[in-house]
Design a protein around this nucleic acid. Structure first.
Lengths: 223, 223
DNA sequence: GGTTGTACCTTACGGCGTAAGGATAGCGGC
DNA sequence: GCCGCTATCCTTACGCCGTAAGGTACAACC
């Protein structure tokens, strides 16, 4: 009944978004690695080669997926810089954990999308408003992102999800390991990993606060 | 003339080491990603399937390659903990940069090899001798490795090597970007990346010292 | 001299990204 | 109503990939 307006040029960009959204969903389900063109096409009810009408090659799809993920990260809110950076860090870790394939893909991607640029811009803006010099904001951005990426990278590479699995894995590593050759490692595994209540979130927060403390202390000395 | 001693059992383990050494060399030359079984075999003057006599599957080769890389990282020397951790961090970054394929492979690898375990053990031992409690050593290890991995990950994903390339790339991003939409980002690129003398090593050191300062300050409060 | 084990090879399968080109359907203009 | 254009999708094919299954050559040992 209601006639669609003549938005034929829209159809392409709409299709692009659908493809990317499904690609992200597919990658999330698979858990790791990028989906293949064939599987992605199948999910869309289409042949693999049809995707090449909307994207020059697979890399363009991966770029788009990464940008979609970046769009999920909470932009720094309008509070003091430390609270804003803390919230952003927590949101970023959450997003990267929700999309475990993303962090491995970021290595190879170098063309930042619109959401990525907006995100970076907002972070720098927040730091500048918080009293950081340009150089200081660059240092803060670098050390924060390094910590967040690195922590999440390691967290994702752990071969377990719950702390029940943790005990199993830690135990089996322990059993395979020549304990007397690595006494300090043995001690740490026994003392920490096998004790109940070891939480990744807590460990993340400890390092994050250490970094934020350092930034607060250096802020005015970075001119 | 000189008859070889009957060390047939050695041949297997020797062959394993040769395969791994060549695999690392091949990956270094290719720059990114793991070498394929076929290419690796070709380099060794052998067919692809022959490799499966020494390794159960490709993952075992990747595990071995990672452990070889870990073996290159300088163990913490016998000085004060801060100097030792600083040296280890610099060495670790250097190693990961020399083998750019390694950091992306570590995501998926979960079976630490002997060199990896020795390395971890030595780091923990150094921290414990430096007065860190078990929990404190765990926190320190976590935040340090997170920073080093994350920084290197980002450094490797940059699409250039020299600062000449940097100017080109930064300039082209700048030109493609709607400058007025991202004023802070624009300002930072103009002020920093396009100024000569921007050095990654310097940036790495700034964050590293910030983390080390934080550790020094917290050391005794972590019981 | 027959047995056993190690090292390597051959062949084949299903999956991958994508180059090249063909089919179809909806559109504006005549 | 018909024509040609363009956007969209499909078919086929190529050269890669990891590896399952099974074969061959040869040295070491009984």
């Amino acid at each position: 009944m209601a006639t669609e307006p003549a938005d034929t040029p829209r159809r392409t960009s709409l299709s692009k978004e659908i493809v990317l959204r499904e690609a992200v969903a597919l990658a999330d389900e698979a858990g790791t690695g990028a989906p293949s063109m064939r599987r992605l096409a199948e999910r869309l009810g289409v042949e693999a080669m049809s995707l090449y009408h909307h994207f020059r090659n697979k890399d363009m799809i991966l770029d788009g997926m990464i940008d979609l993920v970046f769009g999920e990260i909470e932009l720094p809110s309008d509070v003091d810089w430390r609270t804003a950076m803390r919230r952003r860090a927590v949101s970023m870790r959450g997003t990267l954990i929700r999309h475990p394939w993303a962090i491995s893909l970021m290595d190879s991607r170098t063309n930042p999308g619109h959401a990525t640029l907006r995100h970076h811009n907002a972070v720098i803006g927040c730091l500048r408003s918080g009293g950081f010099s340009i150089a200081g904001a660059a240092h803060a951005f670098s050390v924060l992102d390094s910590y967040i990426y690195g922590y999440t990278l390691q967290e994702l590479s752990l071969p377990f999800k719950s702390s029940v699995d943790l005990e199993d894995v830690a135990g089996s590593i322990l059993n395979q390991m020549p304990r007397d050759e690595f006494p300090h490692l043995t001690e740490m595994i026994l003392d920490r990993a096998l004790k109940p209540g070891y939480a990744y979130t807590e460990e993340f927060d400890i390092g994050l606060d250490l970094v934020l403390d350092g930034l607060q202390r250096q802020r005015e000395s970075w001119l």
